[in-house]
Design a protein around this nucleic acid. Sequence first.
DNA 1: GCCAACGTTGGC
DNA 2: GCCAACGTTGGC
Length: 150
Amino acid sequence: MHYWLMKSEPDAFSIDDLARAKTEPWTGVRNYQARNFMRDGMHVGDGVLFYHSSCPEPGVVGIAEVASDAYPDPTQFDRKSDYYDEKSTPENPRWMLVDVAFKRKLGRTIGLDELKQQARLEGFALLQRGNRLSVLPVTKAQWSHILALE
DNA sequence: GCCAACGTTGGC
DNA sequence: GCCAACGTTGGC
């Protein structure tokens, strides 16, 4: 069992959207490190902190769960998609994704500013300088500490 | 809208 | 293989 944080812009796909969808393929990740976490690190049942980014109140807003093993992101083959990648082929797909299932919405947003104030979250990948990864690992200790703030 | 950070691209 | 240019992310 491992833990992760996945970012989404709420204008594009929010925790409420996930609550309605119940399960969603996490399309559009086009960063190799993030892809590798999904492809090599994630397993069904892993915990996911759902994070809202690029919005008035960035922070952790809910809990989700990895719901599939990694498989090729279909949008990379779709010429009409913003995520189309002409260099990727079905025989040798470049981009992978997992399905993410809704677990619950937090009672409140645990804001980025609040996370930054937590001495025990020193070293947390989300808080590292210049970090832009949209999928990143969370330790069990970090997971417990963050959720205890709720 | 600004800008720092940083990944990717492409010329050489 | 270097590195400048460029594009994107994401907080503010």
